[in-house]
Design a protein around this nucleic acid. Structure first.
Lengths: 180, 180
DNA sequence: TGACTCATGTAAGGCGTTACATGATTTT
DNA sequence: AAAATCATGTAACGCCTTACATGAGTCA
């Protein structure tokens, strides 16, 4: 029920810059990585479909088996339509919170490990966001950049919220331990 | 690759209180709803499997076709094991951020709608968390409650972070609009 | 030359939702 | 008596990841 949004990610990336399927996957992993993911098994069939629909154009480059995909005018129009459609989010599945909810069965030690893992992940992410932000600001300015930075900011806010939650929660765990 | 965690949710819920498959689904929707979800198509087969493995016991109640599932001692042990296993989180897929990233193609108006939707969703969630919190605190105290509250707190932190991010981002959009 | 990266694709399988089918019990 | 809710299940299908298969170019 994730409602097939691979085309949005692919067309979107190609609207920024033409590239190969392989490069597409790298771009999605490295740039959208903190809020989106695609695998080869999705990208290549999608690219073939988009090409058949005339939304992207494939151009051979030098060696065969090496190609670049460029978004067409119709592709841009289609992207705009798809971007305007309502967001259909997947049902939530947070393994950390699931385990913490049943923390009485897991035990305080396990809960503490869970929280510490979540905390260090948030710290690591903050570092990555900082790197992305500086990378964007090092480039020559583009109209896209403010929007890119909006998504980085979302990640930063989420990561910082996680960090304060973790610290609070660790203190709560201390109290649980001393009470029992 | 979500690695089959339905059994954890089901055993966990039954470790709190024995109930029917139908009630199980309601409990998961109403109590774990903000961080977990299961559908009937998952719950019933899982329940059958757990029963075959001797991790839960099915007891007919009055009318046939009405039954309750109780977790067994082996089930409790298995739950503890499963809870201790490392969290394997699904690849991220945030439709709002995907759209916002390509905001230049979507347009500032569309971005603003996206943000406003995210903001009002966060406000609604904060209300729900408040209700859950009060519901928990209205019950007679249980050892589980502190852990339940930890997950509620996670939701509150996340929702508040979203709200401030939305407000900041709307102001950024204003500047983008006046600059172009 | 051997290892690594770039590059394109396919096939199998897992996980999960939605829709369907059916019937009992409770409420209005 | 009708409608809503409680209750249990199955079947079909969709989406996505993983693993496999293959080959060209690059670098040590």
């Amino acid at each position: 029920m994730n409602q097939r949004q691979t085309d949005v990610a692919v067309l979107g990336a190609l609207s920024v810059e033409p590239m190969s399927g392989y490069a597409l996957r790298q771009a999605i992993r490295d740039v959208l990585g903190h809020f989106w993911s695609e695998s080869f098994g999705q990208i290549y069939p999608t690219l073939a479909q988009l090409s058949a629909d005339g939304l992207v154009e494939r151009t051979q480059e030098g060696a065969e088996s090496k190609s670049k995909f460029t978004i067409t005018a119709r592709g841009l129009a289609h992207l705009q339509t798809r971007l305007s459609e309502p967001v259909h989010s997947a049902p939530p599945r947070n393994g950390t919170l699931l385990r913490l909810f049943f923390g009485r069965r897991l035990g305080v030690v396990g809960c503490r490990r869970l929280l510490e893992d979540a905390g260090s992940q948030a710290v690591r992410q903050l570092g990555e966001f900082d790197a992305i932000r500086r990378e964007i600001q090092a480039e020559e300015p583009r109209d896209d950049h403010p929007f890119f930075l909006l998504t980085v900011s979302a990640g930063e806010h989420a990561a910082r919220a996680t960090m304060t939650w973790v610290e609070e929660s660790l203190r709560v765990l201390d109290r649980i331990e001393s009470n029992s």
